[in-house]
Amino acid sequence: MLDDRARMEAAKKEKVEQILAEFQLQEEDLKKVMRRMQKEMDRGLRLETHEEASVKMLPTYVRSTPEGSEVGDFLSLDLGGTNFRVMLVKVGEGEEGQWSVKTKHQMYSIPEDAMTGTAEMLFDYISECISDFLDKHQMKHKKLPLGFTFSFPVRHEDIDKGILLNWTKGFKASGAEGNNVVGLLRDAIKRRGDFEMDVVAMVNDTVATMISCYYEDHQCEVGMIVGTGCNACYMEEMQNVELVEGDEGRMCVNTEWGAFGDSGELDEFLLEYDRLVDESSANPGQQLYEKLIGGKYMGELVRLVLLRLVDENLLFHGEASEQLRTRGAFETRFVSQVESDTGDRKQIYNILSTLGLRPSTTDCDIVRRACESVSTRAAHMCSAGLAGVINRMRESRSEDVMRITVGVDGSVYKLHPSFKERFHASVRRLTPSCEITFIESEEGSGRGAALVSAVACKKACMLGQ
């Protein structure tokens, strides 16, 4: 009897593995994704193909990295998701002549009506938060230079001027797309009239992360975010950046690689679950690469896999709870928690219980395998993109072996128990001629924006502006 049951459990697990095998990517698959990513990057950089390229390769006008001589107080704003952060950054000489960066910050959550109302409502709310922060720190009387981390696709015309191309991540505030974001912020500050600010720089969160990590390690020339969304930036040779005049030196390019796949480059790798996630998203047909990796989508992918296993009578005796059938019910943090389970399955059992399920031991094991399959594919897909960037940098610099540091931020990278190990191992397999160091950014977005502002202020002083 026991043997029969054991055989049935083994057969069930084997069927589960057959279904989950769809998520496995072979090294040849990853090399294919990497080569296609490089081709799209090239198209994004070139003037004649930029418009139709899915990977936009947006110039950021960040050319210099901090040298350690900029000092002063800077205000930093960070808008990239449902939370908005205001930070005071003091850049100065530390002990023994070292450079020191001290920060104080406060988080504000953005109400739904500000995210989806008008641009005026959104930026009025942001300036209200700045006003509140300055009151708390008794700094209303000071006109501070301000660095703005704005983590949406922007076409820069200068370091302090950028046109919002399109909202992502659930934002829909009308009247912002096609307009200068810094102008919208300046107008809102003017409307309030109770404080003055000098907006000197606007950067993407990947750029802010790279600059913040450069402060720790001067070989950091790539910034990457794996959180709600997924994106990367890197220092490109100016001669390859056709959208900006000049051939000397390097400029940081914001790849906006989340949109890779929007022209069909990933079609052969998309599964039924991916198509369902895409169809029910706020932007169907867009940001397809990001939807395979980002935390906004990972939990939902797992939920759809679990429903398939229920329908195949391989999980929960073929019956799903009402909660499990509800879109968004299986949160991405559950994926991390399930994979963090120590082996007694308590954590998995508790999560499934909150979803109205009474799982068996085998159910718990199957749910864990589903989570591992989805998150491992995410790590491997992400590795193909980064390997594409790094191999490109090595080739354009004609280096036999390139040493490089990548600064990384984002909740999936930082909080998932195995993502970074799987990701690092896969990147290294795909970049055999590179020695890569990964560092995690601390308060990256805010500190990085302030350091970019410090560079901009120093330049302005040198130019006598």
Rank of each mutant, 00 (worst) to 15 (best):
R397I: 11
M121P: 03
R85I: 00
A176N: 03
M462L: 11
F423N: 01
K140P: 04
D344C: 06
H50L: 03
P59N: 05
S373T: 11
E9N: 09
Y413A: 07
R447S: 02
G44P: 00
K102A: 10
V182K: 06
G170H: 03
G318F: 05
A449R: 01
T228F: 00
P284C: 14
M197S: 11
R5I: 10
G170M: 03
N179Q: 15
R191M: 02
Y413T: 03
R308H: 14
K291Y: 02
I439M: 15
D42A: 11
Q287L: 03
I436M: 09
Q465C: 11
P111N: 10
E440S: 12
G162W: 01
S360M: 14
L352N: 07
K104F: 11
A450N: 00
L75P: 07
E279F: 12
D341Y: 03
C220Q: 04
D42Q: 08
V101N: 13
L79G: 03
I225C: 00
E440D: 13
G318K: 06
T116D: 06
T342M: 10
E440M: 15
M393Y: 12
E442P: 06
E177L: 08
R377N: 07
S109R: 06
M57W: 01
E236N: 01
G94V: 13
Y215P: 04
I110W: 02
V241K: 05
A454Q: 05
L165K: 01
M37Q: 00
E128R: 07
V101G: 10
Q465S: 09
E272Q: 02
E40A: 13
L415I: 07
T431G: 10
T60P: 03
M107G: 14
S398W: 07
F438G: 04
D341L: 08
K143T: 07
K39G: 12
G446K: 02
S76G: 15
R345P: 13
D198E: 15
C129H: 06
D113Y: 13
R392A: 09
D198G: 02
N391T: 11
D158R: 05
W167R: 02
G227F: 00
L355W: 06
V181Q: 01
S418C: 14
G81N: 02
G97Q: 14
T65C: 15
G448A: 00
R403C: 13
K346W: 09
E52L: 10
L304M: 08
V200S: 05
R327I: 12
E265T: 11
K56L: 06
C457S: 13
F23Q: 07
S131E: 05
S281T: 11
K291W: 03
L309Y: 10
L451T: 04
V305H: 15
G97R: 13
K15P: 12
G249T: 05
L324Y: 05
L79T: 05
L324R: 03
L88R: 09
K169Y: 01
T168W: 01
G295K: 02
G97L: 12
F74T: 07
I404L: 08
A6R: 13
G258T: 04
D344I: 06
E17W: 13
E442G: 05
G94W: 09
E221G: 14
E177P: 05
K15T: 08
L324T: 14
H137M: 15
K346Y: 09
T437R: 10
M8F: 08
G246V: 03
L146F: 07
H50A: 04
T149L: 04
D113G: 13
T255W: 00
E248V: 08
D267S: 10
E290W: 01
D73M: 07
V401D: 10
D29P: 08
D135V: 09
K458G: 15
E27S: 12
C230I: 05
D344P: 12
V91L: 15
I163P: 02
K161I: 15
A188M: 00
V55S: 03
R422E: 14
S453W: 01
D262Q: 07
M57G: 02
H380G: 13
G294N: 00
S76Q: 03
A114Y: 10
R429D: 10
I366Y: 07
K13N: 14
T354K: 11
D187E: 05
L304Y: 15
C364A: 09
S396Y: 10
I189S: 01
S321V: 09
S151K: 05
